[in-house]
């Protein structure tokens, strides 16, 4: 399973990469929304997008809307966000995000959520 992680904070990105690699996923990472868009346009075999909502160049919301709108993809999307940004989260859900997790996050919880989403997506196909 291939996961695209889009996160501008290096430390968080490394932690996510490490945790998810350990869980057996293949990881592609992007440091901003624009690079993630490019990767998503070029690669069709990505199974899940894990994205931060606040990023430079292109925000997480724009990335979700690009994925759901332009690329017409049903790939599961998990958002990483801060506490207290409920409105943004609601906006993201409206745009088509599937789940979200708030920072600080428990890496085990994240792994479980991702696993659940991927399984759900696989069974629906």
């Amino acid at each position: 399973m291939k996961i695209l992680i889009c996160e501008d904070d290096t430390m968080t990105l490394k932690a996510l990469e490490h945790k998810l690699k350990k869980e057996g996923y293949e990881i592609i990472s992007a440091k901003d929304g624009k690079s993630a868009c490019d990767i998503l346009s070029e690669q069709n075999d990505i199974d899940l997008l894990l994205t931060d909502l606040h990023m430079p160049v292109l925000s997480g919301l724009e990335l979700i809307s690009f994925l759901r709108g332009k690329l017409q993809s049903n790939m599961p999307i998990v958002m990483l966000t801060r506490v207290g940004l409920e409105e943004t989260v609601l906006q993201a859900f409206e745009l088509g995000a599937d789940d979200y997790i708030t920072k600080p996050f428990n890496p085990d919880e994240l792994a479980i959520r991702i696993k659940r989403l991927l399984l759900k997506n696989k069974s629906s196909l």
Binding site: D9, M11, T12, A15, K103, P104, F105, N106, P107, D108, E109
Partner: peptide
């Protein structure tokens, strides 16, 4: 500094 950064991001066993 790096440890503080990580402590802001992570919870649970890792923290």
């Amino acid at each position: 500094d790096q440890m503080i950064d990580l402590s802001i991001t992570l919870t649970g066993e890792e923290k």
